[in-house]
């Protein structure tokens, strides 16, 4: 008869422990990542309700929040939204419409983007979907970050307000999971001459000051774009914000809607799953 004590030696215990940890690491998928991400910020800022993270830095910085609330009384993005509504309703030359390209023929679909497109095996953002629609109906594609694209996405964001972000779990498809992992790697990788990762500022240093401004938390970041930036005097897309951050750490930015930014948006938006879409926003 084999005695239990002979099986349960310290060496075997160590091997079992390592195997257990390895199995857990391998099993850690997007949903585990999201739960850990949310838990981190809830532990870091225990007084901030989860739903408040959609307001970016204004969830954390109470002084700036009061100014922001005053700005929101006369939203500076209103003109962009009106322009976007007109663009949405105008038929294309061949009679097609934007509504023909989106589920339910409704503009309020921001919460479902980005999504992994099985047919093309790539991450499709809302901006990319808008241009795909135009291409389908023989229209020239809009410039990413251009006035018309920002206006359309601002209108669609407004129509999506209150809908919970609903990105499908990438774990269900190997291609989607690979794209998610690329975005995750980008997010956590240090880059540029200043050797900073996205997480260095928006996870580790969230709430701390950089010069006179406080750093926002990544949780909820994608819910409120596009935003009107007061300092620029115009609308700004999420990818333009990415490019700004990349430039700030002295790395060369990527093109808007590049694979790098689309996978980053995919990862970041999945982290905010369940939070309400509340774009467009107003920022300093």
């Amino acid at each position: 008869m084999i005695r239990l004590t002979t099986l349960w030696t310290p060496a075997r215990q160590a091997v079992l422990l390592i195997a257990l940890v390895a199995c857990q690491a391998a099993a850690a998928g997007p949903e585990d990542d999201r739960k850990a991400f949310v838990a981190y910020f809830q532990a870091r800022f225990p007084d901030i309700p989860l739903a408040e993270y959609v307001n970016g830095i204004y969830a954390i910085d109470q002084d700036s929040r009061e100014q922001w609330q005053e700005i929101e009384e006369f939203p500076p993005y209103e003109f962009a939204v009106e322009q976007g509504a007109a663009l949405w309703q105008a038929p294309f030359a061949d009679g097609g419409r934007y509504s023909d390209c989106f589920v339910g023929a409704e503009p309020g679909v921001r919460q479902n983007y980005p999504r992994y497109d099985l047919a093309t095996a790539e991450v499709v953002t809302l901006d990319l979907a808008i241009n795909r629609c135009r291409k389908k109906y023989g229209q020239a594609e809009l410039t990413f970050g251009g006035e018309e694209m920002l206006a359309l996405s601002a209108f669609m964001a407004l129509e999506s307000r209150g809908n919970p972000i609903s990105i499908e779990n990438p774990a269900g498809n190997p291609g989607a999971l690979a794209a998610y992992e690329q975005g995750k790697q980008f997010y956590y990788s240090k880059r540029g001459q200043l050797n900073f990762s996205c997480a260095d500022c928006h996870v580790t240093s969230a709430g701390l000051y950089v010069r006179a401004d406080r750093l926002s938390a990544s949780l909820g970041h994608p819910t409120h774009f596009p935003v009107y930036r007061s300092k620029l005097g115009n609308m700004l897309s999420l990818h333009q914000r990415f490019a700004g951050c990349i430039r700030d750490v002295r790395a060369k930015p990527f093109a808007l809607q590049s694979k790098e930014y689309r996978t980053l948006e995919y990862f970041l938006t999945y982290m905010s799953n369940g939070l309400e879409a509340n774009g467009p926003g107003a920022r300093k």
Partner: peptide, 23 residues
Amino acid sequence: LQAEQALKQADREASAWKHRVVK
């Protein structure tokens, strides 16, 4: 020197990023 340091950073970050993932 900048390009060389960028490549060293790329080599380092190929695996170092994993240690920063929120768990």
